[in-house]
C-alpha cells in the first residue's frame, strides 16, 4: 500500500463545530431507517451503528439500497421513518452542523466541469469556511497525487483523476465521518492505494468511514466490519476478514 501523509498532514487541526460530547458519541447511529420513493421501498427498517475509529463496508447487489442509505446518512435525503444521529447530532434538526462533520463521495463527483481543480476546491473551502484554505487544498491535492494539476479544468481530467479530486473534495474540511459510495470507481491501482491510505488514516485518527463498493476484496481489506444489504433490508453483519471475500462474492452472484 502506498505511504501517504501522516496525521500531522492529514488533519492539522480539529474541525470547528463538534463539542467533546459530540466527539465521544457514536460516529453514526441510525435506527429503524425506512425510505420510500413513491410506492418503492428503498430502505426498510435499517439500523446501524458506526463507532469512531471504525470503517464499515456495506455490500449488496445493485438496487439493494446502499446508495439510498448513504444519501440518508449524508442528509441529502430525508428518511420516511427512523432516526439518524451523527456524532451526537440529530437529523434533521441539526443537519447543518452534521454536514460540517461529514465528507461524502457519491456516484457523481460534485465538481464543476468548467472550473479548474484549484477553483473547485477553493469554492468548497469557502463554503466550509476553512481558514487555512490554501494550505489545506495543497495538502489534499498532494494526498491524491493531483498537486501538479491545479490549473487544469475538471473537464480535461480523466475519469479516474476526477474521482481522485472528488475524494479530495470530500476530505477537504477534515470530516469526522466519511461516507463513501463506491469511491473506487474509475480508480487505477495507485488511486486505490491512496484511497486505502486515506481511509486508514481517517480510522487511525479517530474518524469513521462508511463505505459501499462492488470491489469485495478492496472492501474487506479496508473495512473492519461488513454489512450485507438486499432489497432495502439489512440481512447480516460480520467482522471483515479475508475469508469473507468468497462468501460475499457467492452471495452477490446469487442475489444479482
Amino acid at each position: 500500500m502506498m505511504a501517504v501523509a501522516g496525521p500531522d498532514v492529514a488533519r492539522t487541526e480539529t474541525p470547528p463545530g463538534p463539542t467533546a460530547a459530540a466527539l465521544a458519541a457514536p460516529a453514526v447511529e441510525a435506527t429503524g431507517l425506512t425510505k420510500r420513493y413513491g410506492n418503492r421501498l428503498a430502505l426498510h427498517d435499517v439500523s446501524l451503528r458506526v463507532d469512531p475509529s471504525e470503517c464499515v463496508g456495506i455490500f449488496g447487489p445493485n438496487g439493494a439500497g446502499k446508495s439510498t442509505l448513504l444519501r440518508v446518512l449524508s442528509t441529502l435525503a430525508r428518511p420516511t421513518a427512523g432516526r439518524v444521529r451523527c456524532c451526537g447530532l440529530e437529523m434533521p434538526a441539526q443537519a447543518s452542523e452534521m454536514r460540517r462533520l461529514v465528507g461524502v463521495v457519491g456516484h457523481q463527483t460534485y465538481l464543476y466541469d468548467d472550473l479548474t481543480v484549484w477553483e473547485n476546491l477553493d469554492f468548497y473551502a469557502r463554503l466550509y469556511g476553512l481558514r487555512d484554505a490554501g494550505d489545506r487544498i495543497r495538502q489534499v491535492l498532494d494526498l491524491l497525487g493531483l498537486g501538479d494539476r491545479t490549473e487544469e479544468r475538471v473537464r480535461a481530467l480523466s475519469r479516474g483523476l476526477q474521482q481522485r479530486l472528488a475524494i479530495a473534495r470530500a476530505i477537504l474540511h477534515r470530516p469526522r465521518v466519511l461516507l463513501l459510495d463506491e469511491p473506487d470507481t474509475g480508480l487505477d491501482r495507485e488511486g486505490r492505494d491512496r484511497l486505502a491510505s486515506i481511509i486508514g488514516e481517517q480510522v487511525r485518527l479517530g474518524g469513521a468511514v462508511v463505505l459501499t463498493t462492488h470491489a469485495v476484496e478492496f472492501g474487506c481489506q479496508v473495512a473492519s466490519r461488513v454489512l450485507f444489504l438486499d432489497r432495502g433490508r439489512l440481512l447480516w453483519e460480520r467482522p471483515a476478514s479475508g475469508d469473507l471475500v468468497d462468501e460475499l462474492e457467492r452471495q452477490l452472484r446469487r442475489r444479482a
Partner: peptide, 17 residues
C-alpha cells in the same frame, strides 16, 4: 449547470444554511 456532475448536491452537502 449546477446539476452537471451533481455539483448542486455538493453545495447542499456543505454546512451552508
Amino acid at each position: 449547470i449546477d446539476r452537471q456532475q451533481g455539483a448542486w448536491e455538493g453545495v447542499l452537502l456543505s454546512p451552508v444554511d
